[in-house]
């Protein structure tokens, strides 16, 4: 049960004056249950790549396998794939349309042809999972705050019971608290439901503390694909492509340069603090 991408290429506007090679020879293995961060600068191809995971875009060449089945093969049930691989886009405004929150969340499961009871129980479950208060269920989605809208958008996808949840910039436009709330909720979701989560972002800080694996995209190619602490060791290269390692990485490297014997691969503030205290106690 996993997604496998082989030699995937994608060219926007092939044959026109505005041709753009957006993905170049992507090879990835996305096994079940992982919490993956996908990072890249604007235009690095990350949004294009995730749209291939549920077949919204079809690669110009190459293949995508879902549970070892080629999704580009004749007769593959694309609609089923879309319920298995849930993709939440960056702007919740692009998908909210119903008169109230609850009905909107029901849209996904209803499209799967489920019964009314099943649809509603799934919608309740999804709204509970994203931590939206019950008093908002019957409110128009357009009256909610940015963070709440985003929760409803995520719930709209979760209600389809996906095995893989892909979130495109779920924190864009949120204040720091809203950002942490959403990310904590997503992490909890990953724990609770044991689903694969792919978090797309351009901020290392955002993903570093949550994910177990980071895929760095640059100019349509996979640049790094490793555990966060390994990826952050390349912080100079990351800087060169307009990204940055978390601030603690810089702090720890700075301390090392001054002769402190601390490990430089801490990824979170807490971890770094622990390492520094340990060092100070020893010396």
């Amino acid at each position: 049960m996993a997604i496998r991408i082989e030699h995937l290429n994608y060219i926007y506007g092939a044959g026109t004056a505005f041709e753009k090679h957006a993905l170049r020879d992507i090879n990835l293995d996305l096994p079940d249950g992982q919490f993956i961060g996908m990072i890249g600068h604007t235009g690095s191809g990350k949004s294009t790549l995730i749209q291939h995971l549920n077949g919204l875009l079809k690669g110009t060449s190459g293949a995508v396998y879902y549970n070892d089945k080629n999704i580009y093969e004749e007769g593959f049930e694309m609609k089923r794939l879309r319920s298995r691989v849930g993709l939440v886009f960056q702007y919740p405004e692009h998908q909210l349309f119903e008169a109230d929150v609850f009905t909107d969340v029901c849209f996904g499961p209803k499209n799967l042809g489920l019964s009314k009871e099943e649809t509603e129980s799934r919608a309740y479950e999804a709204l509970r999972l994203v931590g939206l208060k019950e008093k908002y269920y019957k409110v128009s989605p357009f009256e909610l705050s940015g963070g709440q809208k985003r929760r409803v958008a995520i719930a709209g996808i979760l209600a389809m019971n996906p095995e893989v949840l892909v979130l495109d910039e779920p924190t864009a436009g949120l204040d720091p608290k809203g950002r942490d709330d959403i990310l904590d909720q997503v992490a909890k979701l990953h724990e609770e439901k044991k689903i694969t989560v792919i978090l797309v972002s351009h901020s290392m800080e955002d993903v570093a503390r949550y994910v177990e694996r980071i895929i760095v995209m640059n100019k349509g190619q996979v640049m790094f694909d490793d555990a966060p602490r390994k990826v952050f060791q390349h912080y100079k290269e990351l800087e060169a492509i307009g990204l940055a390692a978390p601030q603690v990485t810089y702090l720890m490297h700075g301390l090392q340069e001054r002769g402190w014997k601390v490990p430089a691969d801490a990824t979170t503030v807490e971890e770094a603090a622990g390492a520094i205290i340990e060092y100070l106690q020893k010396s």
Partner: peptide, 11 residues
């Protein structure tokens, strides 16, 4: 974009 977002919800 909206079409894609709704297609992702099975529209």
């Amino acid at each position: 974009k909206i079409m894609k977002a709704q297609m992702a919800r099975g529209a």
